[in-house]
Design a binder for these strands. Structure first.
Lengths: 205, 205
DNA sequence: GAAAGAAGTGAACCATCATTCATAGTTTCC
DNA sequence: GGAAACTATGAATGATGGTTCACTTCTTTC
């Protein structure tokens, strides 16, 4: 008499939700938050608009999930690089490089996550993640200072600056059309090291 | 028979428009773009909602005017400082300091202009002004390089980074509550100089 | 296979605001 | 003073897009 979801059914629902989040992310990457209406997202996922509400209480909740998923992944990657091997300065350079490369490889999504106008809930979430980025950078800078590789400074300020600087450089339609991503990457990394006060060319080759 | 606006009438209309822009700016500074509905703005200016359309073709046009007015002023101030007296490095430091101080003095407005979610027209305008900030910084950096005060670098990238870094530091609710604006200002300026690669303490005292 | 419980559907609903417009009020000019 | 030209008003209008819900379709259980 009692109806209980069979494991297969639970699995199916779970992957339907997953699929929705994935496709919603695609839509956001392509047309930005503003273009990602419930209808558009539902269409992309191949379900009815109403069905979105089987998985999420509101559009905002879905948007937040999309943001968390994508950004969380980037934070994890950055964290593992920043806590990897090498001197703090080398790790900082690697972190910036990896972060920027990934962003340049999927510009649409990067723009949506970093800068595009978004609804309030996503905006709030952005602040949370910015703080996490900042904390990660701040820690490496602290280590660099402790080891005498970086000059004394307010690590929080530098970390915030790095976060902002990287975002701006990646998002701004810089100078000449397609100014060669390789160049941008190199310049950005060099800038980040200067910003933290690293001695010139103390980074990994 | 013909009706011609008398000078006094023209004056009255002009200052009504002015008053509207001013009050709209206040509203935006207080509650952000999202809270600045036509009704709210009209109320603040003491006129009816419909009257807004005597002065502006659309809400977006008013928003753009508010943004241009406020941001244009900041750009002018920055420009005059960056083109002032002293070495390029000193001027860069002064520019960052002045810009940041002004932003900290009216945080609400600064946030609205720099970072707050805004409608598309304002977003587009923001890009335009960001480019102007970038150009201003880039010029000083170029001069610094020419005079051998700054190391070789892609000035556009550094300039974009500075723009982003300053914005982020100013907008982020940094670390400890009220971390003393004076400190933030000093650290931010120091960071900017490092970022451009200036030799330590080559700035004005 | 049939009843019960869920999930899926999509058209209708509704809230929010920007915008309009019929009306009222002002200013100009003879 | 009064006609003409214009400005101000604010309630009504309309567009957008998230959310609901009566109904259909699918799953489970016996």
């Amino acid at each position: 008499m009692a109806y209980r979801k069979t494991p297969a059914e639970i699995q199916r629902l779970e992957s339907a939700r997953e699929h929705l989040v994935t496709r919603a992310t695609d839509v956001v990457a392509e047309v930005g938050w503003s273009g990602a209406s419930v209808t558009a997202v539902a269409d992309a996922a191949g379900i009815a608009a109403g069905s979105v509400y089987q998985h999420f209480a509101s559009k905002a909740a879905l948007a937040v999930e999309v943001f968390r998923r994508a950004t969380g992944h980037e934070v994890d990657v950055l964290e593992s690089v920043l806590n990897g091997s090498g001197t703090p300065v080398e790790r900082l350079a690697d972190g910036v490089r990896v972060f920027a490369r990934r962003a340049l490889e999927s510009r649409g999504l990067a723009y949506a996550l970093l800068a595009a106008p978004a609804d309030a809930a996503v905006g709030a979430e952005r602040l949370v993640f910015r703080r996490r980025y900042r904390a990660l950078f701040a820690e490496v800078i602290r280590e660099g200072m402790a080891q005498g590789l970086l000059p004394p400074q307010n690590g929080e300020v530098t970390a915030a600056a790095l976060t902002g600087a990287i975002g701006e450089v990646l998002v701004a339609p810089l100078g000449s059309p397609e100014d060669d991503d390789q160049d941008i990457l190199a310049e950005l990394t060099a800038m980040a090291l200067r910003c933290a006060g690293a001695a010139p060319s103390s980074a990994r080759p």
